[in-house]
Design a protein around this nucleic acid. Structure first.
Lengths: 345, 345
DNA sequence: GTGAAAGCGCTAACAG
DNA sequence: CTGTTAGCGCTTTCAC
């Protein structure tokens, strides 16, 4: 289990190098304003003792932690099954690493976890938080608000209380959905169905709104609730087929549910895109390119969203240190989407 | 971006409740030894001020952090693409949550990250570490060793220096591989090939050894290196087919590579299992059950491995607090595997 | 039972 | 340039 050697302190290094604690501290933190020979002596002492600064002590006085929490309001099962999170995390991770900040991943599955996460955030472990995958009525926004931790949200938060002024990064879900459906219309399809995402998330609602923008008076039977998973897509597709056997196109709220829909269509002997055209959302390569046929979908740059969230947060944090009010608070960003045509529509 | 209200301190709560800091501290930490009326007064003050203890200050004196680092030596891309990690993390997360400990996920992609992770671990942010997916020559074991952080490894570490005494949880990779190959032999197969995992990981080496245990003098051409990914499985299968067109069975080092192999076999018109029998390793349900045909594979309980790792670590940590030497250091565990028969062999 | 006081290991003025 | 001196916010003896 590895030993726990008592770690040397600044004091010890100072003694060994024959200087004061202050000098050691200076050297450890960049070493400007210390003459070369001393720097060298201190460096050696640090090396010999294997000294590493105690972060708790450091944070206590600096109030900085060089760590950012990423809070995902989903069970691990989903977080790790859905490439969406992987991509977003990759973007975030890249940006944080470049800023020498540590990513701390917090998964919250239920009410009990919320308390723990709240304590963690309020406990001053991190400089800021990146929060995703919010569900309507989610206590998280209020919680980070109360914890007093600077936060950037991934996706527009639903309207809780602390949310009005929230900073977020989102895709143009509604616009992207419109484009997808218009494309289907342009293909001559008339009986266009929609498999929604989890409707307790704004992204799903926005995509549904986009669908309705174009299909103003669509048969209500053509809209079926999914949940962003392949299994949900299968279920929805089956229901759709039962209810409206004459449909000739499907717009699924994301690629994962589109893949499920595709499986059902094939099993039912409907040809794609000849009998039924299918469009997804996300352009998650490992999914969209592997389906049979490859999926026409609305592309959003997920990794870039992650990167942007991190960048906005870090910028905001740095600003606190600098002149107050310089540049003002960052404001939310909505990224554009583009339709990617493949074989399914 | 949310405001940063200055958080109230113990002092403030004490003042408000009209007691000393010591008393507030006692109440906050369980409240034994404080008379009821005072407890009540303090509780109310805490509530009203929204007080949350500052962890940095607390850790500084207690040397506890109620947090455990999970270090995965893989890029996010793989971590999130491979359900293996999801399952293991789920097990860990469950156990840590039950112990009210926070999971801190650290991904290390390259040398630069190692330094950062080393600093993080040595910096005293966590009480212990769970480290996985070690590669041969990986500096991580030595690093945690030097950081002086109690650690449990997932999978037997390769033999670095600090590794001899390392505590780990592993599956019986060699035994499982033997069982898989024997099964194939029992089916009457004679030209049995092996697609290895990433051979810089002990699990892959052990499975290869298991294969060789049974196929003592197999044609060396029947062993091709994979890397635990579906793409690697495809590549290996293609090479195998070119090199030994007469093979009649394949044992793949994990389900993911088996799925790749299956795809190639189908594309090449080989029937599974009639022409070529295939066995995988892991029994990762979302993979093994979805392949066509469903995969016969060696099951290991990955979630349980995670849970066990966490439990062993926590137990070790608790022990430090209690009587020293009680029960001695925990020792490594090797979990058994079982063959799961489906349609592919 | 409760409070006073002494640090945990570090940084940040402030002198010199 | 370097050292001395105060704390950061908390827990924990030790008296009362």
């Amino acid at each position: 289990m590895t030993e726990t050697a008592p770690r040397p302190t600044l004091e010890a290094v100072a003694a060994r190098a024959g200087v004061s604690r202050a000098t050691v501290s200076r050297v450890v933190n960049g070493g400007d304003g210390v003459r070369e020979p001393l720097v060298e002596r201190v460096r050696r002492a640090v090396e010999e003792l294997g000294y590493v600064p105690n972060q708790a002590a450091r944070s206590l006085v600096t109030k900085r932690h060089d760590a950012v929490a990423v809070v995902i309001a989903e069970p691990e099962t989903r977080v790790f099954a859905d490439p969406f999170f992987a991509l977003q995390l990759r973007g975030i991770s890249r940006e944080l690493t470049a800023h020498d900040s540590q990513l701390v991943l917090l998964l919250t599955e239920g009410r009990a976890d919320h308390a723990r996460v709240g304590r963690y955030l309020a406990g001053g472990h991190v400089d800021g938080a990146l929060v995703f995958s919010l569900h309507l009525e989610d206590p998280l926004p209020e919680l980070v608000q109360r914890a007093g931790v600077p936060t950037v949200f991934g996706g527009r938060p639903g309207w809780g209380d602390g949310t009005r002024s929230a900073v977020y990064v989102d895709s143009d879900n509604r616009g992207g959905a419109r484009e997808a459906v218009r494309h289907l219309v342009g293909l001559g399809r008339r009986r266009i169905a929609h498999i929604t995402g989890a409707l307790d998330q704004t992204s799903a609602v926005d995509r549904l709104d986009g669908f309705r923008d174009v299909m103003v008076d669509a048969d209500p039977g053509l809209v079926v609730a999914g949940d962003f998973t392949p299994a949900g897509g299968e279920r929805a597709m089956r229901e759709l087929l039962g209810r409206c056997p004459d449909l000739d196109a499907v717009f699924a709220a994301n690629d994962l549910s589109a893949s499920g829909a595709l499986r059902v269509l094939r099993a039912e002997g409907r040809r794609v895109p000849d009998d039924v055209a299918v469009v997804g959302f996300d352009d998650m390569l490992p999914v969209a390119e592997q389906t049979d046929p490859p999926l026409t979908t609305v592309r959003q740059d997920i990794e870039e969203m992650g990167r942007l969230m991190a960048r906005m947060l870090l910028r905001g944090l740095d600003r606190r240190g600098g002149e107050p009010g310089a540049g003002g608070a960052p404001s939310s960003v909505v990224l554009p989407t583009t339709l990617v045509r493949r074989a399914s529509a």
